[in-house]
Design a protein around this nucleic acid. Structure first.
Lengths: 262, 262
DNA sequence: TGCATTTAATGGTAGTACCATTTAGCATAA
DNA sequence: TTATGCTAAATGGTACTACCATTAAATGCA
C-alpha cells in the first residue's frame, strides 16, 4: 500500500546468519541424512573449529545448542568429545515446562489434553498390550502397594509416573508415549509439590490400579477407559483444590522456589 | 554384593555443574517464579557476566541455550539485549523433527498418533468452535480453492497447514493445538517433498474440506470425525506409496538432502 | 525543521591462555 | 605377576582481551 516510488521489486530482508546457526544446521543435516548416527563422534573442538573456519567460541555455542536440543552429548577428558545421542523423549518435557513457565499454556489445558490423550493410550494399550506389559504393570502396582505401606508418598509419586510410562509403552507408539509422558510429567510435579506440602495423597490408589489392570487384561476398553478417566478427574480435582497449585504464574514445584523478595 | 572391605558408607558421585548450567537454571527459575516475564530485558552480557562472577563465554553459552529453548530472544545494537520471549509452540516441532532424525520415532508412529489426536481435535472443535472459527476455516478453504486453480501446489500445502492450525485453534486448547501442529508439521514436510517431486496432489481436496466444514457447522461430530479420518488415511497412504517418503533414515524433506555419497 | 554524521551500547566472533577431567601408558613396589 | 601410584596427553570448560557489525540515540549542519 504505502509503497515508496522507488521500484516494484521487493527485497527480502537479508538475515545475517550467525556462525553458530550455520554450524548447527550443517550438523543437523548430517544427522537427518544419516551420515551421522547415534554413537558417532564429532572431531575435537579445536580441530572442527579449524575445519569450519570459525573460532572455537562459535563452535562451542553451536555444540551447546545441539546439546540442549538433545542431539549431542559432550564428554570431557581424552576419548571425550561430542557424541551423537540416542533420541530422548525427555526433551519434550522441558518444552512443555517452559511453555507453562512463560504462561502460554494453563493447568486446565494440560489436564484436559492429558485426559483425552490418556484415554487414547488406554484404548490402544487395551488392544495391543502383551503379557509382558501386563506383568510389568502388575509389578509396578505391587511396588506401589509396598511404598504405600512404608508411608513414603514421594516414592509413590514416582511409582505413578512409572505406571503411566509403562501403560504408554504398551501402545507400542513412541510418539504417543512421549506426549502423554510430557503431560504426566508436569502434572506430576504439582502432585509431588502437593504431597510434599503435606496434602492427602490419593486414597485407594492401589485398589483402583488393580481394578484398572483387570479391565485392561480383559481387553475391556470401555471399562478401562472409564476407570482411568474417573481417576484422572479426581486427581485433577485435588490439584485444583490445592491452594499452592493455583493457576497463573504457577510455582516450579521441583525448584527451590522460595520467593524471598517481592 | 561384591563390596570392598573399605566401608559401608556410600558416596554419591559428585557431578560438577558447569557454569552455564547454573546460569540457565537460575534464569529459568526467575521465569518460572514470575519475576521475569515476557518482554523483560536481562542486563547486558558484560554486566550480567560480572554480576554472576563468570566469564562472558559461559554466560553466552547459557543465553544461547535459553535462546534455543525459546526462552529468550537476543537482539543486537544499543537497546538490544536478551529479552524474555512469549511462549512459542514451534519449539515442539523441532523436538519431533529431531527425534525423527535420530531414528527414535517412525513415520508410522507419527501418522498413527496424528490420526488419533486429530480425531480428538475434531470432536472438541465440533463442540466448541465459534462462528469466527467457522468463518476462518471457510476463508481458508476459499483460499485453497484459489491456489488450486492457480496450480501452485506448494502454496496449497501451506493452506493445508493453516487449515489444521485453525481447526486446532477452534478447540481452545493450546496444548492440543501445539501437539497436533507438531505432528502436522513434520508430515507436511513429506507431503511438500512429494508434491515438489511432481507427485499427484490430493484430489478433490476442496470438496472434501467443504463437506467437512459443513459437518462441523452442523456440530455433527461423528460425520466430521469420519471425514477427517478418511482424508488423513488417504493422505498417509499416498505418503507410504511415495518411494522418497520411505521409512528408515528418512529424508529431511525441507533440507538440501542430496545424498551425494554412499 | 530535516537530513546526515557521529557516537555509544551491545551482541557476534576470533584468539590465546589456562584449568579440570579423563584415559592411557609407564614405573615402582609388594 | 599384580597392584598401586605417577606422568603425560587429549579434550572439554572457563576467563580474558580485542575487535567487528549492528543498532539507535545524540549531535551537527544546512
Amino acid at each position: 500500500m504505502a509503497e515508496d516510488s522507488t521500484s516494484v521489486v521487493r527485497f527480502e530482508p537479508i538475515q545475517t546468519r550467525r556462525a553458530f546457526e550455520e554450524i548447527c544446521q550443517r550438523i543437523r543435516e548430517q544427522v537427518a541424512e544419516g551420515r551421522l548416527k547415534p554413537g558417532d563422534k564429532l572431531p575435537a573442538e579445536r580441530d572442527l573449529a579449524q575445519q569450519l573456519g570459525v573460532g572455537r567460541n562459535a563452535l562451542r555455542e553451536a555444540l551447546r545448542s545441539l546439546e540442549i536440543a538433545g542431539i549431542v552429548r559432550l564428554r570431557k577428558g581424552v576419548k571425550g568429545g561430542a557424541f551423537i545421542r540416542e533420541g530422548d523423549g525427555g526433551r519434550m518435557n522441558q518444552v512443555v515446562q517452559d511453555m507453562f513457565s512463560l504462561g502460554s499454556i494453563t493447568v486446565d489445558e494440560l489436564t484436559e489434553a492429558r485426559l483425552h490423550i490418556q484415554e487414547l493410550v488406554v484404548r490402544l494399550a487395551c488392544a495391543r498390550a502383551a503379557d509382558a506389559d501386563f506383568d510389568a504393570l502388575a509389578a509396578n502396582i505391587d511396588g506401589t502397594e509396598e511404598v504405600t505401606r512404608s508411608g513414603d508418598f514421594l516414592k509413590r509419586v514416582e511409582c505413578s509416573r512409572e505406571f503411566y510410562a509403562l501403560l504408554a509403552a504398551a501402545t507400542g507408539n513412541d510418539v504417543l508415549s512421549m506426549m502423554v509422558a510430557s503431560l504426566t510429567e508436569i502434572l506430576m510435579k504439582f502432585v509431588y509439590a502437593r504431597v510434599a506440602a503435606g496434602g492427602h495423597p490419593q486414597p485407594r490408589l492401589v485398589e483402583k490400579r488393580r481394578d484398572f489392570l483387570a479391565a485392561l487384561r480383559a481387553r475391556d476398553a470401555d471399562t478401562a477407559s472409564r476407570l482411568m478417566k474417573s481417576h484422572l478427574e479426581s486427581v485433577h480435582r485435588l490439584l485444583k483444590e490445592t491452594p499452592a497449585g493455583g493457576r497463573k504464574a504457577g510455582p516450579q514445584p521441583a525448584g527451590r522456589a522460595r520467593r524471598a523478595s517481592a
